[in-house]
Nucleic acid binder design. Structure first.
Length: 759
DNA sequence: CGTACTAGTCTTTTT
DNA sequence: GACTAGTACG
């Protein structure tokens, strides 16, 4: 029987079309992974294509592993030679072979965002750039988007046309690239950009890969940025056998350069492309799909499509509206508890999804209190924890002394009496003579002269030398243990914070576990390879679906996953959609948020629960938010009970009962004592958008004049209409005004932006 | 040279 | 509220 037999007609069509450009528009839950895997199996088993000629690219390691596993199950032989990898690891593999052509050392290190930030900081310091006026983060983001658009420092310099600020950016970009090159390092964006650069500069290298990759597949195509698009275009240019799978409605990575036009304009780039839509959903109930469809249909720039299922109507959507975020968390956790106790589900069937990582804390707390096993995906990346970064810095130093950042990170960790002055002297010498920091350490005596400082440095150098000499005889596991022992690392942890030393040591233990399994799985494991693998893991890669735990994660992390029960928490205007997107004039920002909402809804298989809190603490301030506009885009009849009632246009807009001056200053109620409550009957609330005035960065608000209104005055605002001033406070740069708007609740805003006028 | 306190920022999402 | 960077002091 053909591997295509089990597919539906559309899927079959998509999987059977091997030649030429193919665009598969795969709606959520329409079985796109199945199409990709069966397509691959069909290529190998039935079309006689060599696995060696197939390239499949994904965004996460998890997706790549899953794809490989599933192909393995379908095809007996030869799958190991299929190239299934993420964009980033594909590029690393290519660059490891050829980057010397671009003047880098082939054992380059990969910098994560933290590393990049340190480099930028140093450059800004050296250039004496005012970090108040130009925060380092802005340079970081700016450089990243340049790279995503394949624009070099030289391009940017040209484009600056003598403009001071633009030239400053271009110069910093140039410095940054020079620093990376000196450290023999590439950042995430470089991996893609340098590969494209390589292919363009050395057509014979490109051709080599074109001849190998006769059939190319790209998953999650809607998330590709310009650089990734170009990479794929180059690779596919000779044979044009390119099959991309994606869903424009699930494009949620604009902030990191994803260009939705890549998928919307695929047919323009490849006019003879075959386009196939997969609209039958195998995951969710009709109710859930109806909700998803009704939300996403409010977006304008999308390819029209509508998901359907034969799974039947299923259960209605639940809606919870609580007074505080604590009660929200408690209600959700309580629901999961009950259902588990009633034997209706396992813990692992439940996922709580939210917009921002900050929301996880309260949910986590409530899970602990209820004794529910849970697992939080994301937040602080495992590999960005201090202790892990320290150990990795040791490993990097041992592996490749060229990485100045790594060396400087650990030269005095644990404390060995090497101070800032000494480090500064060595670093300055290095910049002057074009030497790496570690090389300067080796010549410490020459640079610093005889003395205590030089001795200390020598001790450090011989410690690293000792590890280096052992490297070929011991495993990475032994090496890490050795580092921890010889540096008295644990002692340092205990001294600095006895309470979490144990946890930090556990994390190091976890790193050792990773090392062990890496060494087991790899033929000839090297330290460089290990460091590389570690650099390219995402949080989602380590998710274990088999553990019986409730999953807590952001909506972004949830993409590609499915759960029987999904809880969408914090569905409030100002949080989701975020206030940035509400305030923005750019309509596409709200559309991106809406797509994110669509992704969230479509994660649910059987039951969807949506919740919102009337008040919550954000950045130490209590905010009062209206229920998310997205919730109101879902028809009432899909909700259990009457649903979130929307007021008719004529109906006078009512105030929240908590939007009173007294409530504004009231501490959030301790939620511990509140008994778990049933789903709160939705109350009529205000339908229109609420927004917070955002303090635009870089805006000039140096001298704010005192406002002409005070507490008790009635004022009017462009967006929120009339309201009563509760408080006026002199802030750092501007007057902060608290206003209780009729129908929008209490807002805190900056006078310069709010443009309030007295009535 | 190392520590302790203070002020300022942050929050959208991540390979 | 939490974390970080920068500063003042021992």
């Amino acid at each position: 029987m053909s591997v295509l037999e089990i597919l539906n007609d559309k899927q079959k069509e998509a999987a059977g079309q091997l030649e030429g450009p193919v665009l598969i528009l795969a709606g959520a839950g329409s079985g796109k992974t199945r199409v990709l895997t069966n397509r691959t199996a069909y290529m190998i088993d039935e079309a006689g294509i060599s696995p060696w000629n197939i390239l499949a690219i994904t965004f996460t390691n998890k997706a790549a592993d899953e794809m490989r596993e599933r192909i393995d199950r379908l095809v007996g032989q030869g799958c190991e030679s299929i190239w299934v990898a993420t964009f980033h690891s594909t590029c690393v593999r290519i660059l490891r072979r050829h980057i010397d052509l671009l003047g880098f050392d082939n054992n380059f290190t990969i910098y994560d965002t933290d590393d990049s930030k340190s480099v930028i900081k140093e450059i800004l310091k050296r250039r004496e750039v005012d970090s108040k006026q130009y925060p380092d983060k802005r340079f970081l983001n700016w450089i990243s988007s340049c790279k995503n658009e394949l624009s070099s420092p030289e391009d940017e310099m040209e484009e600056a046309l003598g403009d001071y600020t633009d030239e400053l950016y271009a110069k910093v970009y140039k410095d940054y690239q020079d620093a990376l090159r000196k450290n023999n390092a590439l950042d995430f964006d470089d991996l893609i950009m340098k590969t494209v650069e390589l292919f363009k500069a050395f057509p014979e290298v490109l051709e080599n890969y074109q001849n190998r990759f006769l059939y190319i597949m790209v998953d999650e195509y809607q998330d590709t940025n310009t650089a990734q698009f170009e990479l794929i275009r180059l690779l596919a240019d000779k044979n044009k056998n390119i099959c991309v799978v994606g869903d424009d409605d699930q494009s949620i990575y604009k902030f990191r350069g994803a260009n939705i036009r890549n998928i919307l304009d695929f047919e323009k780039v490849y006019p003879n492309a075959k386009v196939i839509k997969l609209e039958q959903n195998y995951r969710s109930t009709q109710t859930i799909l109806d909700a998803a469809n009704s939300v996403i249909s409010n977006n304008s720039s999308r390819k029209p499509k509508s998901l359907w299922t034969d799974r039947g109507e299923g259960e209605k959507i639940r809606f919870i509206n609580t007074d505080t975020a604590y009660e929200e968390a408690e209600t959700i956790v309580d629901m999961i508890c009950r259902e588990k106790r009633a034997g209706k589900c396992e813990y692992r069937d439940n996922a709580i999804l939210y917009r921002t990582n900050a929301q996880s804390r309260i949910l986590e707390e409530k899970c602990i209190m209820a004794g529910i096993p849970y697992s939080v995906v994301g937040g602080v990346n495992f590999y960005s924890r201090k202790e892990i970064k320290d150990i990795l810095a040791y490993l990097k130093t041992i592996d490749n002394g060229k990485d100045d950042l790594a060396v400087r990170r650990i030269i005095n960790v644990p404390k060995r009496g090497i101070g800032a002055t000494t480090i500064g002297k060595l670093a300055d010498y290095g910049t002057e003579h074009g030497l790496n920091f570690y090389d300067c350490c080796i010549r410490a005596e020459e640079i610093l002269g005889h003395g205590k400082a030089a001795d200390k440095i020598s001790e450090f150098v011989s410690l690293i030398g000792l590890f280096k000499s052992k490297l070929e005889f011991i495993t990475i596991e032994q090496l890490i243990n050795d580092i921890v022992d010889r540096t008295d690392y644990e002692e340092m942890l205990t001294e600095s914070d006895p309470d979490d030393a144990a946890e930090r040591m556990e994390n190091i233990g976890e790193l050792i576990n990773k090392a062990v399994s890496f060494e087991e799985q790899t033929d000839e494991p090297t330290l460089s390879q290990f460091l590389e693998e570690v650099a390219l893991v995402a949080d989602i890669d380590n998710v274990d679906e088999n553990a019986d735990k409730v999953m807590l994660m952001t909506l972004h992390s949830a993409k590609g996953l499915e759960f029987p029960n999904v809880y969408l928490a914090g569905m409030e205007d100002g949080l989701f959609p975020g206030f940035m997107s509400i305030c923005s004039d750019d309509e596409t920002e709200i559309e991106e948020e809406r797509r994110l909402c669509y992704v969230g809804i479509t994660r649910a298989m059987n039951r969807l629960t949506i919740s919102a809190a009337r008040s919550r603490m954000i950045r130490g301030e209590t905010q009062y938010n209206a229920v998310s506009r997205f919730v109101k885009e879902i028809p009432d009849e899909l909700f259990e009970g009457r649903g979130p009632v929307r007021p008719s246009k004529e109906e006078p807009v009512r105030k929240f009962e908590y939007s009173t001056p007294g409530a504004a200053t009231r501490k959030t109620a301790p939620a511990t004592s509140t008994p778990s409550r049933p789903v709160v009957a939705p109350k009529p609330f205000i339908a229109r958008a609420t927004a917070f005035t955002s303090l635009k960065k870089g805006a000039d608000i140096a001298s704010a004049a005192a406002p002409d209104y005070g507490p008790g005055d009635r004022v009017s605002h462009m967006k929120f209409g009339a309201g009563t001033v509760l408080n006026v406070e002199k802030g750092a740069r501007d007057y902060e005004v608290t206003v209780d708007f009729d129908g929008f609740g209490t807002k805190k805003m900056f006078a310069a932006f709010a443009k309030l006028s007295k009535i």
